[in-house]
Amino acid sequence: MNKQSNGTSFWLIALAFLITMVGTTLPTPLYALYQQHLGFGPTWVTLIFAIYAAGVILALLAVGSWSDQLGRRPMLLAGLAMGAVSAVIFLCTDSIGGLLVARLISGFSAGIMTGTGTVAVIEAAPKRWQANATLVATAANMLGLGLGPLLAGFTSQLLPWPVHLAFIVHLLLLLVAAVAILAVGETVQRPASPRLGFQRPSVPAAVRGPFIPAAIAGLAGFSVTGLFTSLVPAIMRQVMGHDQGLMIGAVIFVLFLGSIVGQAWVRRIREAAQMSVGCCILILGVACLGMSIASAQLWLLVLGGALSGIGQGLTFRAGMGAVANAAPAGQKAGVTSALFIVYYVSMSLPVIAVGVSIPLFGLHHSAEFFSVLVALVAIVAMVSMNVARARASNA
């Protein structure tokens, strides 16, 4: 029996999910300050991002299905605890090694929360919200990711303790999130004898139909997300001459706000066209990103972020909703975690490639090349999905 009404539990879990995801992008506007203080180059920034993605994927593989066995609440609390440990390390560290450890643990937090939080929000939805439960879950995820850079940009530019205050604020928010999770009831029936183990990235046969197109579209959408969030601080500082943390955070926030708009818009598009429309908008967004680098125009960068976010949101929401609805009751967290493994691999690979390329070819050439490459991935994803749909209809 839930401690709170179903509606209250629904919003409390969504709030805790959002707060956790704020911490995962909190350091983004601060890397320039860390670089000045610790004296490391752009390749190290790439490694910091890559180790975060590795932490997410490892957590999804190791414990992605555990909430189906142990319950949602224990795993949500574990994700919050990991986020708090990461924030404490950021507060105490004064070395590149400390930053790497903090980001790895932040990845663990995101990996635990991503699959479990998405499913827990959907399960806790009252009847009047069930049609929009997936939107609330994915919007909480994306809004948290967008608010992280905005919060850190604000505190680093306008308040004392530029590299520390954001993490203090986040620790307080995590305390609020923990109280929220303790106040809600369990949303899943735990088995009498839980079976825990390392999750192989496999998908039940009943889910493969919606899973494969969702994964292909996610490859394009999350590649754009990784590319944009990793490049924007350097583009704005080195190409456009804007070094204010708040402005950098605001431009990154536009991407995630666009994602929420795309997620809300998806139901107004007929189901067969949702992925194609999302990929087309992604291509336009990446084109604007490439042109903003070539012309050093901030408005093109903002437009590119908004369009890329809308396209990513369309493909993300359409794919996540189809997969979550098709997953068997006892395997929802595991299947959702498998989809997020694809998404985070898609997000991390362009960032690693860009980090390796910039010292060799420079920021302009590397960013423009990978913008074109991600646009091509979106085109391939759109064509592949249309071919697969045509084959399914003819079968």
Rank of each mutant, 00 (worst) to 15 (best):
M1W: 13
M1I: 12
Q4I: 13
G7F: 02
I13E: 02
T20L: 10
T20P: 00
T20V: 13
L30P: 09
Y31L: 12
A32I: 08
L33C: 04
Q35Y: 07
Q36D: 14
L38G: 05
G39V: 00
G39I: 02
W44I: 15
V45I: 14
F49T: 03
Y52P: 02
A53S: 11
G55E: 08
V56R: 09
L58S: 15
L61G: 09
A62H: 10
Q69R: 11
P74E: 07
L76D: 03
A78T: 15
A78P: 01
M82Q: 03
V85G: 09
A87L: 13
I89N: 11
L91N: 08
D94P: 00
S95C: 08
I96A: 12
L104G: 03
L104N: 13
S109Q: 05
I112R: 03
I112F: 10
T118K: 05
A120P: 01
I122P: 03
A124W: 02
A125E: 13
A125C: 13
K127N: 07
R128P: 03
Q130H: 00
Q130K: 15
A133C: 13
T138K: 02
A139V: 11
A140V: 01
N141T: 07
L143S: 11
P149H: 09
F154T: 12
F154L: 15
H164L: 06
L172A: 15
L173R: 12
V179Q: 09
V179P: 04
I181F: 09
L182T: 07
A183T: 06
V184F: 06
T187K: 01
A192C: 02
S193T: 13
G197F: 10
R200A: 14
P204S: 13
P204R: 12
A205W: 00
V207Y: 09
P210A: 09
A214Q: 07
A214V: 06
G221C: 10
G221N: 10
V224L: 09
V224A: 15
L227M: 08
S230P: 03
L231N: 02
P233Q: 08
A234L: 14
R237Q: 14
Q238G: 03
Q244M: 07
I248D: 05
V254D: 03
L257N: 03
S259M: 12
V261W: 05
E271W: 03
A272Q: 09
Q274F: 01
Q274K: 02
M275K: 00
G278M: 07
V286A: 05
V286H: 00
A287D: 02
C288H: 03
G290P: 06
Q297W: 13
L298E: 11
L301S: 07
L301I: 06
V302P: 04
V302S: 08
S308K: 01
A322E: 11
A322H: 11
V323C: 05
N325R: 15
A327F: 09
A333I: 01
T336R: 06
Y343P: 00
Y344V: 05
V345C: 05
S346V: 10
S348V: 06
L349A: 15
G355A: 04
P359K: 12
L360D: 12
H364N: 12
H364E: 06
H364L: 04
H365G: 04
H365W: 12
L373I: 02
V374H: 00
L376Q: 02
A378Y: 05
V380N: 06
A381W: 04
M382F: 02
A388P: 04
A392C: 01
A395K: 01
